[in-house]
């Protein structure tokens, strides 16, 4: 069974710009991968719960006590303006 993937659309959602050659190559490769993955459909999973983690853990929740982290939040940032991290604009091209 084949799975057709609109790689251009998925790459836009994943925020990875692809040029035309890359898009064509990835389409071919990803469809090849998915073709091989179709055999997963053979496994009977009727009534089986998903395992989101390999083991069940009892959650030890954190107490609501302030524990400030001592570091310079701008040390790794290249663009900072008045203690704010500079990011791209929201609107426009």
């Amino acid at each position: 069974m084949e799975e057709k993937v609109d790689v251009g659309k998925v790459a836009r959602a994943a925020k990875v710009r692809l040029d035309a050659a890359e898009a064509a190559r990835f389409s071919w490769e990803i469809e090849g991968i998915l073709e091989n993955f179709q055999k997963l459909g053979e496994v009977d999973v009727e009534g089986i719960e998903p395992s989101f983690n390999p083991l069940r853990a009892k959650a030890e929740l954190r107490e609501d006590v302030p524990a400030p982290f001592d570091f310079d939040p701008f040390a790794n940032a290249r663009f900072v303006f008045k203690r704010k991290i500079v990011g791209p604009k929201v609107l426009g091209e």
């Binding site: 954190r62 006590v65 302030p66 400030p68 982290f69 701008f74 008045k82 203690r83």
Partner: peptide, 25 residues
């Protein structure tokens, strides 16, 4: 709450980015 949902940073801020840590950044 006194602290954020997933880290020990306080929920009050006096100036930009003064109550941040690797988790909430």
């Amino acid at each position: 709450t006194a602290t954020k949902l997933f880290c020990g940073c306080t929920t009050v801020s006096r100036e930009p980015n003064d109550n941040v840590c690797p988790i909430c950044m």
